[in-house]
Amino acid sequence: MNSLSSFFTRFKLKPQVMPGFGLSLGFTLFYLGLIVLIPLSGIFIKSSSLSWNEIWLTVTHPRVIHSYKISFGLSFLAALINGFFGLMIAWVLVRYSFPGKRLLDALVDLPFALPTAVAGITLCSLYAPNGWIGYYLSLLGIKVSYTPLGILLALIFIGTPFVVRTVQPVIEDFDQEVEEASMSLGAGRLQTFCRVLMPPLIPPLLTGMALAFARAVGEYGSVIFIAGNMPMKSEITPLMIVIQLEQYEYAKATAIAGVMMIISFLMLLCINLLQAWSSRYQRN
């Protein structure tokens, strides 16, 4: 408490009327530090027990490099596909009416709410060669389960709500008069969409895609079943951490985790900048 009051005077903060600053901020920092920050800092402390050379060899092992390509490449592809379909879903849910719309609107959040292991075994069974969809695809010679294509499907599944839920409120807030003005100035529907409606949608669309990407990169449960986990073929980066841990190679596991964390931090920074950009856009 003492240190907090000196903190006040040091930063010349105006006296606060609301009570409970010391208690609420103190507990917040204590809890966050104990549960999240101190344990996470362990990643960088532990990986420093390896030499730079060892760290480099671990994080650039061909199998690990391939897992980056799978994880980051497929997550990026999934985010693009989510961007396209997410925009379409949000548009249709806001602008059109059709039977079952309210139910579908509620179900969009299912990938958030459904435990990842359930999603994993369900998608894997659906797309396995003897599954409901996989059977017909296998007749066409397409293998989904236990291939990178299966990983992509799982990542699209878990990313669906992110784009829809960031774009949907912006479409709801559109002012009809702007579209009327555009029309009365002679613009066609396509031109109105591209020149008038699309520009304010771009920041939330990018934010949603970045969120979907960040989630997909770290995703484990829903991917691990459908991936098949074949070395140099369908292994994701989180699995490389698990494999190192199972061999009690804690330092190597943390080195790979460190690479993922740095990329996640950069992603978080990008998302915050995007959100700041989109809120500025909306205010103008």
Partner: peptide, 8 residues
């Protein structure tokens, strides 16, 4: 905790 992989 949302930004890092649950495995981490």
């Amino acid at each position: 905790p949302f930004a890092v992989s649950p495995v981490i």
